[in-house]
Design a protein around this nucleic acid. Structure first.
Lengths: 336, 336
DNA sequence: TTGTAGGCGTTATCAA
DNA sequence: TTGATAACGCCTACAA
């Protein structure tokens, strides 16, 4: 078990003091170009990798940022993690990932414990935690830099990365209206997710604008396939059956498709189904879902970038909005 | 920005030396029960959380273990992460997650860099990295404890957690034979995943045992839905169409179902489709997939547990095998 | 049963 | 432009 390569080894190899090596490591000025080169060579030839713990202990920064989530959707979490990690890799930072799933009331406590223990320099906060008032307050109190993804309220709490859920839902509803649908059911999303409200507003606004906003059938879902299935059964068993159903996310839309299959209703000929998110399953179910592509990877990539700016005392815009796309697939068609 | 609470604060509050606090923190013997209680109270009332960096710098252990993956399946990665995290939470350890997706040839390099920088005490290595000879050798060379999930070769490289892929595939094939199918197509998994070989062997062995092992149609897939769809098209366009198709994972099975829908072949009445893994999508596609439940969460939970034992110098069994389950859903039925 | 001194690998401070 | 030295918060070794 040989001892690890340390800054002293590099300093010796390059014939300089450890402080100079440290300067090179941190891209600090005040090192002659030639010296810098010599140090860089020594680092490479010894394949020296500075110790994160030592740096965070000694310095103001840990070169570690955190990502927290409390979200059961494998696809969303995976995309978000991937995006944040990619940005961190670019910046030569490490990402510490913390799940708050199944934590009950101890979420805030657990996040604070993680912050204290790991010394993360900042936090990317994903939905629905990004709208958790207790967590946001706690972070502000600690003065820990953080960037939120898709929060309900962008007016406080530092930089946010958002997507226009309302406009997207509006677009999707218009798409269905354009196909001739007039009775368009809606499966609302989980009440705790702020995006649920926005998507429903967009849906309603589009219907109102078309003059058919009254008495449209709306069912509550909880963002999972099972609740989408149940909502679908209810919508499709009603006396005045809708010719289209717009679900607030893909998982629920898949549930609606299941319900239609089971009731012998042909999608899309007798029923159009639209989803939201463009998660992996959107392309896997049959027929593949017309949906809104939410750029989760890109949003997380951007959020990590903003956080890195924040941590390095560079200014970051308060709100960064990324574009969505309406992805047309096989689950929607002209009204029968 | 107040200074963080340190071990000195706790020592002062409890009226003891920092060494005694340290003993309590690490559950070391040699502290009077009453003293221990006083220290615990001080810790709680100050909500003191020991600094991970400081501990890893000073001590032999970092109280941090790593999890590495190189796997594009959101569902699998999510399950594995969740299992390992849950086990770490129980043990008051932190988990550092590292993705090696899209890293090309730099995977080993990147993992070693992570190890050096973070000082992780050990590593949970998931498939297919668990069968990456270069990585395994590098880890052995560093004498870093590690536990592998579902590796191809359990005879070397420390503790492993496995599932009997071959027996599971055998069972599934027998299930199809029991339903009266005699022409059973197979969509083979990604050639780089060791489980692919085992699943195919189980399939073939069951057919051989039933005396119908000759000339069964087999197509190569790559574990994603698109390749499953292509393989399904080929199998279903052949002159002698199979009455059942067994895909080496759920994503590909979903692709086969797509192909069947598109060709107007009714599942399961005209074609039975079976998958493997019981990932989230198995229950989302329609009809829901008959599949093998691979206990990814439990396997990762167990692996993290073994690693913790290893790290704490406790013995760990070389091979831990977890049970699979055949989950029967709507995608398989009697042969037409 | 408890405490003291030294050091882990880095950055910060200040001097040269 | 460079370097010596003192932290950082904790654990190890040893002493009391």
């Amino acid at each position: 078990m040989m001892a690890r390569t340390t800054i002293d080894d590099v300093a010796a190899a390059a014939g300089v003091s450890i402080k100079t090596v440290s300067r090179v490591l941190n891209d600090e000025p005040g090192v002659r170009t030639e010296t810098r080169g010599r140090v860089r060579e020594a680092i490479a030839s010894l394949s020296y990798r500075p110790s994160l713990p030592a740096r965070s202990l000694a310095g103001k920064r840990s070169n570690l940022i955190g990502l927290v989530y409390d979200n059961p959707s494998a696809n969303y979490v995976f995309d978000v993690q991937s995006g944040a990690m990619a940005r961190c890799r670019d910046a030569h930072l490490r990402l510490f990932i913390q799940s708050c799933n199944d934590l009950g009331g101890e979420t805030v406590e657990e996040v604070l414990a993680m912050i204290d223990q790991t010394h993360v320099d900042g936090l990317v906060v994903t939905p629905p935690l990004s709208s958790d008032a207790a967590l946001i307050s706690a972070l502000e109190e600690r003065r820990l830099p953080f960037v939120r993804l898709a929060p309900d309220d962008t007016s406080r709490g530092g930089p946010c990365v958002i997507m226009d859920d309302e406009a997207a839902a509006h677009d999707m509803t218009e798409h269905l209206l354009d196909l001739g649908h007039r009775r368009i059911g809606f499966v609302a999303g989980h009440p705790e997710h702020p995006s649920s409200r926005l998507r429903r507003q967009g849906y309603q606004a589009a219907l109102d604008a078309a003059g058919v906003g009254e008495n449209q059938p709306i069912e509550q879902g909880f963002n999972d396939t099972a609740s989408g299935y149940e909502a679908g059964r209810r919508l499709l068993s009603a006396s005045k059956r809708p010719t289209a159903i717009f679900a607030s996310n893909d998982d629920m839309a898949a549930g609606v498709v299941q319900a239609a299959h089971e009731l012998g209703i042909d999608v899309p000929r007798q029923l159009s189904v639209a989803g939201f998110d463009d998660s992996q399953i959107a392309a896997i179910v049959w027929p593949a879902l017309t949906t809104i592509r939410q750029p989760a990877y890109e949003m997380a990539f951007a959020a990590a970038g903003l956080l890195i700016d924040l941590v390095r005392d560079r200014p970051a815009p308060a709100v960064t909005e990324l574009a969505y796309t309406l992805v047309q697939r096989g689950s929607t068609a002209e009204a029968p």
